[in-house]
Design a protein around this nucleic acid. Structure first.
Lengths: 64, 64
DNA sequence: ACCTAATGTAAGATATAGTTTACATATGCA
DNA sequence: TGCATATGTAAACTATATCTTACATTAGGT
C-alpha cells in the first residue's frame, strides 16, 4: 500500500495532526497510511486527496 | 461511494462472479460495491481497476 | 412455460481498519 | 539546556468491510 501521501502532505506544509483533523481520522491513522502499513478505505483516500488538492491516481495509483 | 464499476464491467462483458474471482472477493462484495453500499478498501479498488483496465480515477474519482 | 445463468439480498461470523490512551523519540527554538 | 511541537509506536477496544450460506428474483434462450 505504498503511496505519495507523506511527500504531498509535507509539500503542503501541514502536519499529520492537521490532515487527520481535516479528514476526520486520528493522527495515528495518517501515520500508518503514510508508512504503507494500512489498507485505507476508499472514502478516506478520497478525503485525503481532496484535502491535499490531488486526485486518487496522483496519491495512490501505481506508486513505485 | 458511487462509482463506475458496474458500467465498466458490463462494457467489458464479464459477470460479477468473474470479476470477483479475478480480484479475490465474493460476488456479493462486487454487487454491493456496484450499488455504492460499500466503502471498499484501496487494495480492492486497485485490483478492480487493473482487472478492468482502468485507473482509480476513472472508476472512483468524482463520479456524479 | 421451462431451464439456466446472473443478480439481489439478508443473517451471522470473521478479519481488519480505525480509535483511544499512553509513552518514547526527534527536532527546532528561546 | 530546557521546552514545545511533531512523529513513531504499541495494546486494547470498537466499527465495519468482507465471507459464508442460503434463498429469491430477473432475464435470455429453447
Amino acid at each position: 500500500m505504498k503511496n505519495n501521501v507523506k511527500i504531498t502532505r509535507i509539500k503542503a506544509s501541514i502536519t499529520q495532526e492537521q490532515l487527520a483533523r481535516k479528514v476526520g481520522v486520528t493522527r495515528q491513522t495518517i501515520g500508518l497510511i503514510e508508512k504503507g502499513e494500512y489498507n485505507p478505505s476508499l472514502q478516506l483516500c478520497v478525503a485525503i486527496a481532496k484535502e491535499l488538492n490531488r486526485t486518487l491516481d496522483e496519491l495512490f495509483w501505481e506508486v513505485d
